[in-house]
Design a protein around this nucleic acid. Structure first.
Lengths: 118, 118
DNA sequence: CCTAAACCTGACGTCGACGTGAGGTACGAG
DNA sequence: CTCGTACCTCACGTCGACGTCAGGTTTAGG
């Protein structure tokens, strides 16, 4: 599979895929002409990378954790890092939940005020 | 209250407070000498701004929503925006929850493998 | 009056995940 | 062989929420 097709299938840009390779998140074989050639598994990998980015991990962290996320084998340091990131995500969820509740209350207030006004 | 004290009380930097003013998120009176002088309510306001930033809102969005968040009065457009942001936060929470679950499973796998190995 | 600490206004630097444009090469269809 | 499209490698631009440095002013205390 070439880069354009992988981009369309995964929903990320061609530029992003090259960036992933630059950051050593994603490898590619090359055609004799020098064009990238991806195996089918690359699709899952790109989706995994996207998930981790969406969770707020940096590319540096992702590159450290990708091996154990995909293989299930981890060094103690990697396990620590995994736990740190999971806890960070949990804390972030707390923050967002609080903010959502706050906005929800504002919406209720505003709506109530409007109803009264009507 | 002067800027340094507000910074210490709210836990944000002096630079950040000046930035908030630049973005019209926060007002200040001035002493005859030109130094910022904040009322006590500024503390709550800064905390509110922080909460909204933490929820991923941009300063532009915050400046649009601050009036109704603090006063409870909103135009229809503001109400729409409030709902959009709340839903965006909810979606973000979903993403993070999925990622957290995924990392949790990886941690379980790794831990299980290690226990077996022991 | 003097000094140190806190404050002021520019204005440039940062970081991460790409976007974007330039200038050139590879590939598949006809 | 040729054309159009996809691809290649630099390499600079972007955006947002500040950090940081420079050079000067204000304030509170002794």
């Amino acid at each position: 599979m070439r880069i354009g097709q992988l981009a369309r299938r995964s929903g990320v840009s061609v530029r992003a895929l090259r960036y992933y390779e630059e950051q050593r998140l994603l490898e590619s074989a090359r055609t004799p002409g020098g064009q990238r050639d991806y195996p089918d598994e690359a699709l899952e990998r790109v989706q995994l990378i996207q998930d981790l980015f969406a969770a707020g991990l940096s590319s540096r962290t992702v590159v450290e954790l990708l091996p154990c996320v995909s293989t299930g084998v981890a060094t103690p340091a990697m396990l620590d890092q995994l736990i740190i990131e999971r806890d960070r995500i949990a804390a972030r969820i707390q923050d967002l939940t609080r903010a959502k509740t706050k906005l929800g209350r504002v919406i209720e207030n505003v709506t109530a005020a409007k109803v009264v006004q009507d």
